[in-house]
Design a protein around this nucleic acid. Structure first.
Length: 346
DNA sequence: ATGCATGAGGC
DNA sequence: CCTCATGCATA
């Protein structure tokens, strides 16, 4: 497998010292200009479509429209420049994250639930109650305290374009050191790919699931590092994360792997850890976009990946979907597209 | 394994 | 309202 995939980061530069584990600056506000372009009365591409076409001709129609639209509304094709960013933040602070997750579930510590050396057992007093909420709270909490987004581990630097990735900052250096890794070795896609594979293989050998790994990360007690979901571990293994994200997570997962293998050596068994399943709470319902609608969205996306709010509203109406659903779909599609593009080039 | 969603941080 | 990192829910 030589495929990697991360998107080409529009923003890969952070030169600064940011701080700790997570940070680079994200937002790139690029193409805003294109967003508001077509507000023209008749010119709007989307306004041109009538219900009649929606069914499925729409997909074709949308594409088709793009070719002709220059007549009235071509503004949207504007330039897509991306800028990067710069970065900010400096803190020197306190590296650790305050909260830990308390879920009732921690049956597993690291690998060894009951008495591992680290004594990890996180649980606190709160037994799950609001389910999803809590998890969120835990990582989010730290995340905003740190700088940028969540987790902590995140963002690293981009793939290697800058000189050295790792520690510019003391705090970060410390974290890196703690994790036992060095900053330099990793931004290479090739290396990440190889590591992801090794990781998966060894994880399986240890008999640990992706979900177990995610929870166990909190037990490592690395500054700024909390639990992660099965999804994230899965995406790491399959390289389905952004490049920056892969880089940020690698050291953490590597640290866990080493620790887990060490513990596995002198292992013993203690069957405890009955995970108390949380009382069911409100389950979030995942809206599912039907195939025809999805096809239409894809067609629109091909024409305009970043429709304005108004266009989104129009599309939503045509497809009979909630505006927010459509907006989120475009956001997710863009993220996916970035990964795909990046993967394609590597 | 992956689709839709949330939320922080940023313009 | 965007991008990003992540997650819950689900196929």
């Amino acid at each position: 497998m030589t495929m990697s995939m991360y998107p080409s980061p529009d923003k890969m530069k952070m030169g600064t010292p940011g701080c700790f584990p997570g940070r680079y600056s994200p937002s790139y506000r690029g193409p805003d200009q294109m967003r508001r372009c077509m507000t023209n009365p008749s010119g709007d591409i989307f306004s041109g479509l009538n219900d009649g076409i929606l069914s499925r001709a729409e997909a074709l129609a949308a594409v088709d429209i793009q070719k002709h639209q220059s007549s009235h509304a071509h503004t949207q094709m504007s330039t897509q420049l991306k800028h990067d960013v710069m970065y900010h933040h400096g803190m020197g602070g306190p590296p650790q994250r305050p909260l830990q997750m308390h879920h009732t579930m921690d049956g597993l510590d690291m690998l060894d639930p009951a008495n591992s050396m680290t004594t990890l057992t996180p649980m606190s007093d709160t037994p799950i109650s609001s389910s999803h909420h809590q998890l969120h709270g835990s990582y989010h909490g730290m995340n905003h305290m740190m700088g940028h987004h969540h987790g902590g581990p995140l963002s690293g630097h981009t793939t290697g374009h800058h000189g050295h990735p790792g520690a510019h900052h003391p705090a970060m250096a410390a974290a890196v050191a703690a994790a036992g890794l060095h900053p330099d070795t990793d931004t290479d896609p090739r290396e990440l790919e190889a590591f992801a594979e090794r990781f998966k293989q060894r994880r399986i050998k240890l008999g640990v699931t992706q979900a177990d790994v995610g929870k166990a990360l909190a037990n490592l007690k690395l500054p700024g590092v909390g639990a992660l979901s099965q999804s994230t571990i899965c995406r790491f293994e399959s390289l389905t994360l952004s490049h920056n994200n892969m880089i940020a997570l690698k050291p953490i997962l590597q640290a866990w792997l080493e620790e887990a293998e060490a513990q596995a050596k002198n292992k013993r068994r203690d069957p405890d850890a009955p995970s108390v399943l949380p009382a069911g709470e409100k389950k979030r319902k995942r809206t599912s976009i039907a195939a025809p609608e999805k096809r239409s969205l894809e067609a629109y996306f091909a024409v305009q990946p970043r429709p304005s709010g108004e266009k989104i509203a129009a599309i939503a109406e045509k497809l009979d979907l909630k505006k927010n659903v459509v907006r989120v779909w475009f956001c997710n599609q863009r993220q996916k597209q970035k990964r795909m593009k990046f993967a394609a080039q590597h």
